[in-house]
């Protein structure tokens, strides 16, 4: 029971991070039908931005409140990562919009290589460890020397994820921007004819996706306390897996998929073998897609003859 509870807590934490990244994949796919392969690396860059500013605040500027520093860092990371993704979309994807379907995919793969190697060149190949922050834990259950605990970091991750998802949900469902996004998703040409600024809507979609990835990046950095230039790929692929699992194009699906992937991973490591946790996640993806190609919450694709 303790193990179960512990894995549940860890899984939800990990899943929250995957879910936040997955939203970026799913939104971009929904609106322009493109798999944005560079998104995982955008997430990695955001973690670096967070790391740099956290260091700047705590060591150079001498901010003493860790919480204040984290909040400021998160906001800065959201803004700068949004800017980065905006620029990427402008330079690498927009010229390819409406052309050959695989061209943006290859461009995105190229961009992913550029981002990780840029960070390697600019910040060096070594791990970047932060001094531990928010290291306290709360013990929930204890038996036979095994305690199920929840750490302050995990609580922070849950709260931040929940708050941001609620805000994000509001933007997508209730604001003119969200309406424009959904219109572009349905029919870009028609939306443009009705006066929706399609280019701007797509740009903002990239910015929003990046901002959520930046939240995930900051939380990832706080949780693990270390970041490396190659950290974009695996969480990126897992988050993409999550987006597909939940039904690509569906926002609640992305969050659900993220949580499921997080849970599968932690439970598999807890009960079976830590070696094969990624194999488990990918196998479940393959199985779900084979038997339920539209994902859990996606709209079934109707084959129109």
């Amino acid at each position: 029971m303790e193990i179960f509870l512990q894995q549940l807590i860890n899984g939800i934490t990990l899943g929250s991070i995957y879910g936040l990244i997955a939203i970026g994949y799913t939104m971009v796919f929904g609106i322009i039908g493109m798999v944005n392969f560079a998104h995982g690396d955008v997430f990695m860059v955001s973690a670096f931005i967070a790391m740099i500013f956290f260091l700047l605040f705590t060591t150079v500027l001498g901010v003493s409140s860790v919480i204040m520093a984290l909040i400021a860092v998160m906001i800065i990371a959201m803004v700068l990562t949004g800017l980065l993704n905006w620029a990427i979309e402008r330079v690498a994807y927009r010229p390819l919009r409406g052309s050959f379907r695989l061209a943006p995919l290859i461009s995105a793969i190229g961009m992913s290589i550029v981002l990780s190697n840029f960070i390697q060149v600019a910040q060096g190949p070594r791990n970047k460890p932060l001094p531990p922050v928010l290291s306290g834990t709360i013990t929930l259950m204890e038996r036979n020397n095994f305690a199920a605990t929840i750490s302050y970091k995990q609580i922070l991750i849950w709260v931040v994820t929940a708050v941001l998802l609620a805000g994000f949900w509001y933007v997508v469902q209730k604001t003119p921007l969200g309406r424009a996004q959904r219109a572009c998703e349905q029919d870009r040409k028609m939306a443009a004819l009705l006066g929706v600024n399609v280019d701007r809507t797509i740009s903002l979609t990239f910015v929003m996706g990046a901002a959520l990835a930046a939240v995930a990046g900051t939380l990832y950095l706080t949780y693990y306390g270390v970041v490396n230039f190659s950290d974009g790929f695996t969480p990126g692929v897992k988050a993409f897996t999550a987006a597909v699992l939940g039904g690509i194009g569906s926002l609640p699906g992305a969050v659900l998929g993220g949580l499921l992937i997080g849970l599968i991973e932690t439970f598999w490591s807890g009960y079976f073998s830590i070696d094969y946790k990624d194999v488990a996640a990918f196998s479940i993806l393959a199985i779900v897609l084979i038997f339920m190609p539209q994902g859990l919450l996606g709209r079934p694709e109707v084959e129109k003859v």
């Binding site: 330079v91 690498a92 010229p95 390819l96 052309s99 050959f100 061209a103 943006p104 290859i106 461009s107 793969i109 190229g110 961009m111 992913s112 290589i113 550029v114 981002l115 190697n117 840029f118 390697q120 060149v121």
Partner: peptide, 21 residues
């Protein structure tokens, strides 16, 4: 040598923009 892959990635993006097909 460390710029090798960076340039490789940039070339991928540029070639796609230049000749998408």
């Amino acid at each position: 040598d460390q710029f090798r892959m960076l340039i490789f990635g940039l070339a991928m993006v540029l070639v796609m923009i230049w000749k998408p097909r």
